[in-house]
Amino acid sequence: MPLVRIELWAGKSKDLKDAISKDVTDVLVKHLGCPPEGVTIVFDERPKSDWYTAGKSHVELHPDKK
């Protein structure tokens, strides 16, 4: 069954991750026909300082976002 790994900046709320998990599960159940219990979602949170785009830290690129 599907395993979905979602990487994002650290600090997202449990409520947000609950909502994302539900929506992703619903989409996979709809399109794959698998049971909800077969869908596993892993959130891999990293500090913004560990994310880089075009050689610049996301701390620099997105100072106002958490």
Rank of each mutant, 00 (worst) to 15 (best):
D64L: 08
K30E: 11
S21A: 11
R46D: 13
A54Q: 12
T40Y: 08
A10V: 01
L28Y: 03
K56Q: 14
P36V: 01
K22P: 09
T40E: 11
K12L: 05
V27A: 13
G38A: 03
F43Y: 14
K12R: 12
G11E: 07
D26W: 00
H31V: 10
K14N: 03
L8S: 11
S21C: 11
S13H: 01
L8E: 09
D18R: 02
V39E: 02
K65F: 15
R5C: 01
G38L: 00
P35E: 08
V59S: 10
V24Q: 04
S49P: 02
E60R: 08
P36Q: 09
K14T: 03
L28M: 06
K22S: 03
D50S: 15
R46S: 13
A54H: 12
M1R: 07
K56V: 05
L61H: 10
G38K: 00
V42Q: 15
V42R: 14
T40S: 08
T53D: 03
L61I: 12
S21Q: 05
K66Y: 10
S13Y: 02
D50I: 01
L8V: 04
K14C: 01
A54C: 14
V39S: 02
V39T: 08
S57W: 05
T25W: 00
F43T: 13
L32P: 07
Y52F: 06
G33M: 05
H31D: 13
F43K: 07
D15Y: 04
H31C: 05
I20G: 05
V39W: 01
L8I: 10
K66N: 11
K14Q: 03
L61R: 14
E7N: 09
A54W: 12
V24F: 01
L16W: 12
Y52A: 09
C34Q: 13
K48Y: 10
T40H: 13
K22L: 11
G38F: 00
D64K: 06
V42A: 08
W51N: 08
I20W: 02
G11W: 11
I41A: 00
D23Y: 04
E37D: 06
R5N: 09
G33V: 07
P36M: 00
K65D: 14
G38E: 00
T25E: 07
L28V: 04
L32F: 04
V27C: 14
E37Q: 11
K22G: 06
V4Y: 01
I6A: 11
V29R: 00
E60D: 15
K56M: 08
V27S: 07
P47R: 15
G33S: 07
P35Q: 05
D23G: 04
S21F: 05
